[in-house]
Design a protein around this nucleic acid. Structure first.
Length: 395
DNA sequence: TCTGGGGTCCTAGGACCC
DNA sequence: TCTGGGGTCCTAGGACCC
């Protein structure tokens, strides 16, 4: 079973508003949840069904959405609210099975094979949908099948508040007639290439020679052919999986064109990334710095650390080196910092030279983390980045 | 006031080893 | 007789997802 919240960010924000005294239900008007245009993050994150009728799509700039519908109302939403409703859904679903995979903030897979016969899967779906409607006050689409891919494709059929099945014997009738862009894992780069090969609907792809696809697209070719044929043997991942990488990036309110300012932004990012890393009790083996120019070209450099660490200063210093070799004086729109090759701190060989300096740095991180937890993340920071905060926004 | 932010996975090429 | 064949590790870039 795949469960997908309809217009998740917008629905959840609508309910939260109503609960907090607002009278207008933004699900009933042309409305979108969007970023902040003054911070140059003005894109559509979610849309109401009425906004959808104007042709507004997720990911497009707000100014473009306004062209399609001048009376559109834009709300900024609140990530904490999304997290809260996402958890409510998860808790409700947990009453049915512990085999739940949180695929994203608004999507879950449930493995119910051990809990019921196929004949009653639909009954379970009907019950879950009804309970979500009544107890949580939003709607979901539910897809049912014998594997994750087909269940996910099914939940994407007609919306909102619908239950669909897509069993193997229904693939030809329900899936093969859809345009290839509807198939999971076919994105904007691959679709035009397939079109050039006269592959336009999923059925075309399913009947195409598999070996030729592998020759042209490698591993991705194999996957797209299997998906088009409804083949997927992946498991529902319900056990805790630690993150493989942690990163933060920020689009700057204004382009920046000097290294000193970029360094300060990097320090802000380093504090945040390593703070999150330490909360997982993990250490990182690789540091990666990325830049996006004002002309939307992306560059990145990464390098391996001699010893895995979660120390803010160590990671910042390495990031600074990477930035220095990366930066060529262009005007920069976005800065990102990512740590990779993560491992559990208790199971990792840390620096052999556990110097006084290292110990001092670790104590400093611990102390700052405690203050942040007790009084709020913003209450303490490093002097090195003063004067730049207004250009950098982090949650 | 034009185009977010957080991720995972794959590929290609180069360095280096025997 | 100019330069094999196998492998690992590292980095840069890109595709895709929500």
């Amino acid at each position: 079973m795949h469960i997908d919240v309809n217009n998740a960010f917008l629905s959840w924000f609508a309910i939260w508003r109503l609960k907090n005294g607002e009278t207008l239900d933004i699900r009933e008007i042309p409305a979108v949840i969007g970023g902040d245009e003054s911070k140059r993050s003005g894109i559509v994150l979610a849309k109401s069904n009425l906004a959808k009728k104007f042709g507004i799509v997720t990911g497009e700039p707000l100014y473009q959405a306004r062209k399609k519908c001048p009376e559109i109302k834009v709300f900024q939403g609140d990530f904490k609210v999304y997290r809260e409703y996402s958890n409510k859904l998860y808790n409700l679903l947990s009453e049915y099975t512990h085999k739940i995979e949180r695929f994203s903030i608004d999507e879950c897979f449930l493995d119910l094979t051990e809990y019921l016969m196929n004949s009653t899967l639909l009954d379970k779906a009907i019950e879950i949908q009804k309970r979500v409607n009544e107890e949580l006050e939003f709607t979901v689409n539910i897809g049912l099948s014998s594997n994750k891919l087909l269940a996910k494709m099914a939940s994407d059929f007609e919306k909102p508040n619908k239950i669909h099945t897509l069993y193997p014997n229904e693939i030809e009738k329900k899936m093969w007639s859809l345009p290839i862009g509807e198939l999971f894992m076919l994105g904007r780069k691959t679709i035009p290439k397939l079109y050039n090969m006269h592959i336009k609907i999923i059925g075309d792809l399913a009947k195409f020679d598999k070996n030729e696809l592998v020759k042209k697209f490698g591993k991705h070719g194999k996957i797209m052919w299997e998906y088009a044929n409804g083949i997927d043997d992946s498991e529902v991942i319900y056990k805790y999986e630690p993150p493989k990488s942690i990163g933060n990036s920020t689009t700057l309110a204004k382009d920046v064109q000097n290294l000193e300012d970029l360094n300060k932004i990097l320090l802000t990012l380093a504090e945040h990334v390593t703070y999150r890393l330490r909360k997982y009790n993990m250490v990182a083996g690789v540091v990666n710095v990325g830049l996006r120019t004002s002309s939307f070209r992306d560059f990145s450099h990464q390098s391996k650390l001699d010893f895995a660490t979660s120390n803010t200063k160590e990671i910042y210093l390495r990031a600074k080196e990477l930035l220095k070799e990366l930066y060529n004086g262009e005007s920069i729109r976005l800065v990102s910092l990512k740590v990779d090759k993560l491992s559990d701190k208790n199971e990792t060989q840390l620096s052999l030279f556990n110097t006084t300096e290292n110990k001092k740095q670790e104590k400093l991180d611990e102390a700052l983390d405690k203050i942040k937890e007790k009084y709020g993340y913003e209450k303490i920071t490093r002097a090195g980045k003063l004067g730049m905060e207004k250009n950098v926004k982090l949650k």
